[in-house]
């Protein structure tokens, strides 16, 4: 049993979720603060786009930007940075594909926090920064957590964009989804089956764990509270 794809997938998904979570949450917060409706809707649509496009389109666009013979790719190549056909590319693919899930979940989580809490916090003198970290984020936490699970699982299962920019290099960029596909196509269905089972198990563990955590917090907060819900 070749464990490399499992390790690569887990490494890729773990690193990419950290990046995705930070950027997704931060951008969701910024977008929520935009006053002008038209501007907000436009930016929101752009950030949601990778969600509805096929991953191969995202991969294609990434290549268009970072490909070795494209301006940016060449520029990066000058300073010795390569982001195609290596492990970093798998992370980039996972981040781009899973980002909209995180972003939309974070936005929804922020929106459902009653603005009255932020108002109360302002009247007792809390700075905007303290409000974000001590009021907004903790109250949005369940939504952020579920966004994180979604994004992590999506990153784990990423295939189309990864194949395009990271390649299918066994032991380097061959993630579990790529390994499954190559195995099926190469007639090694037993091998594919093993990866499929692992993938399902890992995803299930994460979904269960975070579901459990968020439910406990929700029960503690929500029972009998008097603040109005939208």
């Amino acid at each position: 049993m070749e464990w490399a794809p499992v390790i690569i997938s887990l490494k890729t998904a773990s690193v990419s979720i950290l990046i995705t979570f930070a950027i997704g949450t931060w951008l969701a917060y910024l977008v929520c603060r935009i006053r002008k409706d038209s501007v907000r809707s436009t930016i929101d649509a752009i950030l949601t786009l990778p969600l509805v496009l096929p991953p191969t389109v995202a991969g294609f666009l990434l290549l268009y930007i970072f490909g070795s013979y494209r301006p940016l790719g060449e520029l990066l190549g000058e300073i010795g940075v390569r982001i195609v056909f290596n492990w970093q590319a798998t992370v980039i693919a996972a981040v781009v594909i899973s980002f909209p899930l995180m972003y939309r979940s974070a936005k929804a989580a922020f929106v459902q926090v009653d603005p009255i809490f932020m108002q109360a916090a302002r009247t007792i003198g809390l700075s905007e920064r303290r409000i974000v970290f001590r009021i907004l984020l903790p109250l949005a936490a369940p939504g952020l957590a579920s966004g994180g699970i979604l994004a992590f699982s999506r990153g784990l299962g990423e295939f189309g964009a990864t194949a395009l920019i990271a390649g299918n290099i066994p032991g380097v960029t061959r993630t579990m989804p790529l390994a499954i596909y190559s195995a099926v196509v190469g007639g090694r269905t037993e091998e594919a089956y093993r990866y499929v089972v692992i993938l399902i198990l890992v995803s299930f563990i994460f979904v269960w764990l975070l579901s459990f955590l968020t439910d406990r917090r929700t029960t503690r907060q929500r029972s009998g509270e008097r603040t109005p819900r939208l």
């Binding site: 070795s68 013979y69 790719g73 195609v84 920019i165 299918n168």
Partner: peptide, 14 residues
């Protein structure tokens, strides 16, 4: 997993 994939990788410089 097919030759077209290989062609594209080379054409794009990946």
């Amino acid at each position: 997993t097919n030759v077209t994939e290989v062609l594209n990788w080379v054409a794009e410089g990946s």
